[in-house]
């Protein structure tokens, strides 16, 4: 991994839904250890963009080039499906807004965390369980609950479990879609603090979609503001939030409620 090569290079990515534009003309480089926030209102195309970047949706145009560990930069949509799926469950993580979409609710917390390990060939039960325990601790879940089903967990715990499940294979890039959406404020704060710590400590790169500017300020080094499928402004997080240039960003920033 070289500092000269971006981890993810996005070039003119666009996605149309028939006549409707999902997102268009998106280009940026994401560097190792960098967290990019994508903000915008509902329908601005930020989730469409995230889905394109994370290979869940094939873009109508453009390239998404990822600096793979083995072979260097490759367009993820020119990989074979098996290469892409392997990448998605080893070197990437995907944290969904609703933890119920990102967890297997029918199996225990430990199995949820261990699944990725088993998927890449771990075949020692004791080791897998130990690793699962370590990760539950890291995300502040009582290890005594390792055999409980996630459906018995609170929303905040489910979200933390989802994070552990994703990070267990030491991915280099994590996509997060509204990671704190739907959580109450105190739970949100805990999760943000945890995410912030993990990202710094593990040197993760991340793309975080959120409509919450406070979340963006706390997590992201850099911001991209989207409206109507277009990127209207991007730059350093505090610069975009403190000295917004585009009319829409100014509106967004001035619309925050102060407690």
């Amino acid at each position: 991994m070289s500092q000269d090569t971006p981890l993810l290079s996005v070039q003119n990515v666009g996605k149309d839904y028939g006549e409707t534009i999902g997102c268009t003309d998106v280009s940026f480089d994401l560097w190792p250890g960098e967290v990019l926030g994508i903000v915008g209102e509902s329908g601005s195309g930020k989730t469409t963009l995230l889905n394109c970047l994370s290979a869940q949706l094939e873009p109508s145009r453009g390239k998404v080039i990822y600096d793979t560990r083995a072979e260097g930069p490759r367009n993820i949509f020119e990989m074979t499906e098996s290469e892409r799926r392997l990448l998605m469950r080893t070197d990437w993580g995907l944290v969904r807004q609703n933890p119920r979409d990102g967890l297997r609710l029918g199996v225990s917390a430990g199995a949820n965390v261990g699944e990725r390990l088993m998927a890449v060939g771990a075949r020692h039960y004791g080791d897998i369980r130990q690793e699962a325990c370590d990760w539950l601790e890291k995300v502040e879940i009582d290890t005594g609950r390792i055999d409980h089903l996630p459906s018995t967990f609170s929303g905040g715990m489910q979200q933390r479990l989802q994070i552990a499940r994703n990070l267990v294979t030491n991915p280099r890039l994590v996509f997060m879609d509204e990671p704190t959406g739907g959580l109450d404020v105190s739970v949100q704060a805990r999760l943000l603090d945890l995410l912030r710590g993990l990202v710094t400590r593990l040197g993760l790169s991340a793309v975080v979609v959120t409509h919450d500017l406070a979340v963006a300020r706390l997590l992201a080094h850099r911001l991209m503001v989207m409206k109507g499928g277009h990127v209207v402004e991007q730059g350093l997080t505090d610069q975009v939030l403190d000295d917004p240039q585009h009319a829409y960003t100014q509106l967004l920033v001035s619309s925050i409620l102060q407690p």
Binding site: G235, L236, D238, Q239, D242, D243, Q245
Partner: peptide, 9 residues
């Protein structure tokens, strides 16, 4: 001051 810090453009 903020311009020097890169906080303002």
């Amino acid at each position: 001051m903020r311009a020097l810090y890169g906080n303002y453009l």
